[in-house]
Every structure is written in structure tokens, then in C-alpha cells.
Design a protein around this nucleic acid. Structure first.
Lengths: 108, 108
DNA sequence: ACAACGCATAGATGTTTGTCAATATTTATT
DNA sequence: AATAAATATTGACAAACATCTATGCGTTGT
């Protein structure tokens, strides 16, 4: 089950409308946290919390410049994410070795 | 923010190791609920709960046959899901109309 | 008709999550 | 040095969630 831990962390990160919108905004490029904050009806600590979750899973990187932090998407991790979704949802090798025993379909 | 409701429901559906594994299993094709259950260390009601979540977001369909239910992935919704992830993470039209005003980067 | 089986639903419970107010930390400005 | 601004951290709290036990419902087979 640990096999899915990376995927779960990524899916969890986007399982929130606020974070989905943040990622949507960042897709256009780097943004300062203060700018993101203005687009929302949330407090600054809440935004900070969301950014931490997005950074912890690797999807977003923060670049500190003076007292500001500029956030941006990590395209590599985005691609990894897409690959995970594709991997999870597409047929794999095991499928060719299926055995049907009444209700007992085993995929090993 | 309602713009993201479909996406959030999909990401939430996969934000659980158990459900991720179920989808992984179903990627090989249709499976009876009882078979999925045997692969897990969860009770039958818990599985039923997970299947409901997966069905409610459209990712999985259930086909009833006698006393069994055969679950399978809905490839169309899977593709929609991939499209949403791509849409959310890739640059859009608004990006070309950016204005930089100090920390005030506005993406409209 | 009855018992057994597969699955769903209801209700209870502990855990996780999103949010906030208050406070700390770091950097820039005066 | 003092103040202000941007962000992070802490602690509290309510809502959402995953899980279980108990039970209900439909189907199959005796």
C-alpha cells in the first residue's frame, strides 16, 4: 500500500477547491503569495497552510526574494503526477495473466 | 470556485490509498466487489463506502448481475480527469495578458 | 418458503482537515 | 533602534472523513 503514498499525497494536495485554484493561477507562471492572497477570501495563515501542503508534495516551489516568496509549479512533478494518473488508470502487464474462476478473477 | 467542483470531487476520490488501489485493480478490467474485498484488509461496508465515492464522481461504473456487482472504470471520465489535470496545470490565455506592477502580478 | 450469500445503509467513533485569531520571525524602511 | 510589512507557526475548533458493528434488502439455491 506504500506503493500509493506519493500518489495519495498528490491527489490530496489537489482535493481542495482553494488549492486547485492556486495551482490554476500558478500555471501561468510565478506568483507572489500576497497576490494569491488577494484573489481569495481566506486569511493569510490559511493561505500559508495551503502553500505548505502544495510544497510538501513537491508540486509547488517557493523562491524567497526579500520579504516576498514567489511560488511556481514544478513542471517535473506535474509530469510525474500525470504519469501516476495514467499508470493507475491504464491496463498493465498483470492483466494479460488473468484467471477467471466464477467470481474469482485474480489479477496478480 | 464552483468551477473546480468536478475536479475536486475527482481528486478527492483518489486521495485515499485504498481507492487508488481499487482503481489500479480496475484498470485491468471489470471486477466483482467480492474479489476486490479479498485483496483488502477492510470490512465489506467500508469497501461499499469506497465504491460509492468512486461511482459518485463517475470514475467507476457498477453493473449488477444477479447478486453480484461488477465494477469497472469509465474510460471517458478517466480521460476527462486527465484533461482537467492538464488544464489546471498548463498555461492559459490569461497568461499572455499579464501586467507586472511590483508585487502586483494580475492574471485576469 | 427458508436459509445463505452479496451488497447497501445507518449509526457510532476516532482521526484528519480547513479555518481562524494570536503570535513569532524575517526583511526592509525610516 | 524602531516600525512596518510579508510570511510562518501555534493552538483551538468545527466539519469532513474512514472505519467499524449491526442491520436491512434483494437474489440464489435448497
Amino acid at each position: 500500500m506504500e506503493k500509493y503514498s506519493t500518489g495519495v499525497r498528490l491527489f490530496k494536495a489537489l482535493a481542495d477547491p482553494g488549492r486547485l485554484m492556486i495551482v490554476d493561477m500558478l500555471s501561468c507562471g510565478e506568483l507572489c503569495a500576497c497576490v494569491i492572497l488577494k484573489k481569495f477570501d481566506i486569511t493569510q495563515p490559511t493561505l500559508s497552510h495551503h502553500m505548505k501542503i502544495l510544497c510538501d508534495c513537491g508540486l509547488v516551489k517557493g523562491r524567497k526574494e526579500g520579504k516576498w516568496i514567489y511560488y511556481s509549479l514544478d513542471k517535473t512533478v506535474v509530469d510525474d503526477f500525470k504519469a501516476i494518473l495514467t499508470e493507475i488508470t491504464s491496463a498493465k502487464v498483470c492483466c494479460s495473466r488473468r484467471e477467471e474462476v466464477c467470481c474469482e478473477v485474480i489479477c496478480r
